[in-house]
Design a protein around this nucleic acid. Structure first.
Lengths: 339, 339
DNA sequence: GGGGCGTCTGACTACGTAGTCAGACGCAAG
DNA sequence: CTTGCGTCTGACTACGTAGTCAGACGCCCC
C-alpha cells in the first residue's frame, strides 16, 4: 500500500457522485444555461461535498488562455511604483484575471527583457511594464502577447505593443507653473534618475513651463529618488542665493532637500519654495508641510488595463498616448518670493 | 480560409522539425541525461527557430504541480509590508517558483479567507500570509496546500499550516531598552492598529521590557500606521510633561508625532526622545534624524520560504517560532532625559 | 398525428507535456 | 560468439477540462 497521496477531486469524481456526466459538471461550474435546476443542485452539492475546485492547469490547457496578466516591475518600495502596483493588482482582479509580478532588480543587465521572458514562460495573456526605465537596448518582444507600457519605452518594439502615458509631463508643468505663478523668476529642478521615463517626463514638463513663461532654465540636478540624493542636491542649491523655488521630482528627495535647506539656514518657504511629487502620506506632516502633486494611480491602472484587456480579448487596436489626471496639493512649503 | 490564428508551437512541432520524437524534445527541454549531444543540438536549434516555449498549463496538468507560490497581502504601500513583499518575490523567483499576489483590501469582510480562496482557485503549491491581521474569525484552510504565516494568526488552523515570527517582540523590547538605558523613567508607546499582529508583537515587547526593568507601564496609544494618527497621538503626549520617551510602532507615525511635538514646543530629543520602527529611507533626514529599528526582510522572507518549500516538496515537518534579526539604528531623536 | 423547435444531457475528443515501458544499439567481459 | 549492461530513443498514455456534435424528450402548432 503506497502513500495515500490522494490527488484533488476532478470533475469526473463530482460527476460520479452526482450521477451525471463529466461534461454536465463542467457546464454547471461554468454557469452555462441548459442545465435543469434539479441537476444543477445535485452537482453543486456533490462538488461541495468533495471540496471540488476547477483545475486551472487543465482549463488553461484546454482554453489556450491563462487569464493571467503579468507585470514586470522594479522591486522598489518607492511610493509611486508600489502604489501603482497595488492599483494594478486590484484592477486586474476586478476584471477577472490572475496577477503575477516579476521584479527586475534595478541595475541588472537587461533586467526588463529577462522579466518579460520569465513572464512569457509562466504563460500570461498580457504583460504590463509598470515602471519602464531605459536600459539602452532595444526591447523587442517576439511573442504573440500584448504588452502595455506606462511611458514611452525607447526601443520597445513588437507586434502588439501599446503605450499609455502617466502624468509626468503634465505634473512637471503644473508644479512649475504654480511656482512661477507665485512670482518666482524661475524654478530649479531636482530630477529623478534619467533612466526613468517618469523622471524624464517630469523634467520635460518643467522645461516646457519655463519656456512658455519665458523664464530662464537653470541647470538641472539629478537625484536617484532617495532622500539622501535630495539632501545632496539641497546642499548645492542652498549655497546659491539665486535659488528661490525648486521643483523636486518626488517627495522623498524633497525631504532630503528640506533638511539640507534647514541646516543651511535657508527658511522654507520664506527664502525658498519647494514643490514635491507623490503626496506621500507624511508629506502633510513635514516641516513645513509639503506642497506636492498627487497622481491618480487607480485611474492610470484602470485605463491602461482596459486597453490591454481589449487587445487580449479582441485583437489589435490603435495605440493611445495621453496624460492622466493629477492634482496639485498646496501646503506650506511654497510662497511668493520674499524680496 | 479562417483567421490564421496560429497557436504557439508545441513540442510536437519542434520534434517534427528536428526529426525526433516529441518525448525526446521533452527530454532535452528538461535537461535530462541520456540524450546524445548531436540530437540535443538539433532539438535546441529547432526550438530556437520556432520560438518554442514550454506550455506551463500542460506541464502543470501533467505534473500536478504549478511551481507557483501565492501571497495574500494587504494592498498597502506601507514601507514594511511592501518591503517584505519585494523580498518575497525575489526569493520566490530565486528558488524557481512563480509568484502570485492577491491583495485583501483592509476592512473587507473575511478578506484573508477570500484571498486564500482565490489563490487556491488559481492553483498554487504554497500560500504565504504576509501581513496577517486578526479578522476575528477562525481561518480554516481545508486544501492540501501548505500555508506560511508571518506571525501568530489567531484561529489559523488547517492540516499544513506553519508560522514563523517576524521581529516584532524583539524590536519592541530593544527600542524600549534603549530608551530606558538612556535613563528615562519609563517609555510611552504609540502602537499600530491592534488587529495587526505586528502591532501586538511590538507592544508586547515594549511591555516585557518595561516589566523587566520594573518601570511603570503608561497607557498605550493606538494609531493606524499613518502620520496623521501619529500626529494625533503626539498632541496628546505633548500635553503631558511627564512624557520624556516614546516608542512609536512605525516611522510614519513617528513623523506625525515629531511634528506634533515640534508644534507644541517640545524639543526632540532635549525634552522628548523618540524611537521609530522600519528605518524608512527618509528617517535619516527628518528633523531631527530619527532613531529607529531596521528589520531584515530578506532574511525573514528567505527563512519563511525555506520552511514552506520544504513542506511543499517533502511534506510536513514541525512548526517553528522564532524571532528574526533586527537592528537598532541610533540617530539624533534620542538622548538622556534633560533634568 | 406529424413536424418542428427549444431544452437538456452525454459520448467523444483535443489541448501539450512528461512518466512508463519497451526496444535498439554498442561495447566489454566471459 | 554470447551475455549483460549502459546508453539512447520512441510509442503509448494520463492528466482534467471544455468544445463539438448527436440524440432524447416534451411541448406547441397546424
Amino acid at each position: 500500500m503506497t502513500e495515500p497521496r490522494r490527488r484533488p477531486p476532478g470533475s469526473t469524481d463530482v460527476a460520479r457522485l452526482a450521477g451525471v456526466s463529466q461534461k454536465t459538471v463542467s457546464r454547471v461550474m461554468n454557469g452555462e444555461q441548459y442545465v435543469s435546476d434539479e441537476v444543477r443542485e445535485r452537482v453543486l452539492a456533490a462538488a461541495r461535498e468533495l471540496g471540488y475546485r476547477r483545475n486551472t492547469a487543465a482549463r488553461a490547457l484546454n482554453l489556450g488562455r491563462f487569464h493571467r496578466i503579468g507585470v514586470a516591475s522594479l522591486g522598489t518600495s518607492l511610493f509611486g511604483p508600489s502604489s501603482l502596483l497595488i492599483a494594478l493588482e486590484r484592477r486586474v482582479r476586478e476584471i477577472g484575471y490572475a496577477f503575477t509580478v516579476v521584479n527586475t532588480l534595478e541595475g541588472e543587465e537587461g533586467g526588463i527583457m529577462k522579466a518579460v521572458e520569465s513572464l512569457l514562460e509562466q504563460g500570461v495573456d498580457g504583460i504590463v511594464l509598470s515602471e519602464p526605465i531605459d536600459e539602452g537596448q532595444t526591447l523587442r518582444i517576439e511573442a504573440d502577447v500584448p504588452v502595455l507600457s506606462f511611458g514611452e519605452l525607447a526601443g520597445l518594439d513588437g507586434p502588439r505593443v501599446m503605450v499609455t502615458g502617466g502624468s509626468g509631463v503634465g505634473a512637471g508643468r503644473t508644479a512649475t507653473e504654480h511656482l512661477l505663478g507665485l512670482g518666482h523668476a524661475t524654478v530649479w529642478h531636482v530630477a529623478g534618475p534619467s533612466r526613468w521615463f517618469a523622471a524624464r517626463d517630469r523634467a520635460q514638463g518643467w522645461r516646457e513651463a519655463l519656456a512658455a513663461a519665458g523664464a530662464p532654465e537653470p541647470p538641472m540636478l539629478e537625484g536617484d529618488w532617495s532622500p539622501a540624493s535630495g539632501y545632496a542636491a539641497g546642499r548645492i542649491l542652498a549655497a546659491d542665493p539665486e535659488v528661490t523655488a525648486v521643483f523636486v521630482a518626488n517627495d522623498d528627495m524633497a525631504i532630503g532637500l528640506l533638511r539640507a535647506l534647514t541646516e543651511a539656514g535657508r527658511a522654507v518657504p520664506e527664502q525658498v519654495s519647494v514643490v514635491g511629487m507623490d503626496d506621500i502620506p507624511s508629506a502633510a506632516y513635514l516641516s513645513p508641510p509639503l506642497t506636492t502633486i498627487r497622481q491618480d494611480f487607480e485611474a492610470t491602472a484602470a485605463h491602461g488595463l482596459e486597453l490591454l484587456v481589449e487587445r487580449i480579448e479582441s485583437g489589435p487596436g490603435q495605440a493611445i498616448r495621453d496624460d492622466l489626471p493629477m492634482e496639485l496639493v498646496v501646503r506650506r512649503s511654497t510662497a511668493p518670493p520674499k524680496e
